[in-house]
């Protein structure tokens, strides 16, 4: 199961990098989103693929009395998803603004910073 997940992560990452190398900046942003999802899956895979319970303590007891899933990667993935969503939202707004200002989505045409 772990090797299947690793192969899937690799394919998503490869697809993301392939899109990032395109000329169109819209495809670049899609590639960035895919890379972000692949990385979140990688954190998920690093916590081990177990079939234990959720890490919640019973109201009456003080300790975890059974084998539970690791809560730290869950928290990390949640934070990473939220941060990634915020960053991607900002990227899309910048993309929109670039198109409004330049009327171009081809990176070969966006040369103003290099020529000035």
């Amino acid at each position: 199961m772990q090797s299947a997940l690793a192969i899937v992560i690799g394919i998503i990452f490869a697809a993301g990098v392939f899109l990032m190398l395109r000329r169109n900046i819209v495809k670049f942003v899609f590639g960035l989103a895919l890379v972000g999802q692949a990385v979140n899956l990688a954190i998920f895979a690093s916590s081990g693929m177990t079939r234990y319970h959720a890490p919640l303590i019973h109201p009456e007891s003080l300790y975890l009395s059974y084998q539970s899933a690791d809560p730290l990667p869950q928290a990390m993935i949640l934070t990473a998803i939220v941060i990634g969503f915020g960053l991607l939202a900002f990227t899309i707004i910048i993309l929109l603004r670039t198109f409004q200002l330049f009327d171009e989505v081809d990176t070969d045409e966006l040369q103003m910073v290099d020529k000035s």
């Binding site: 990385v39 990688a42 954190i43 998920f44 690093s46 916590s47 081990g48 990667p73 990390m76 990473a80």
Partner: peptide, 9 residues
């Protein structure tokens, strides 16, 4: 982030 995931593993 990928590095953090692998390091945690």
């Amino acid at each position: 982030l990928a590095g953090i995931g692998i390091l945690y593993g």
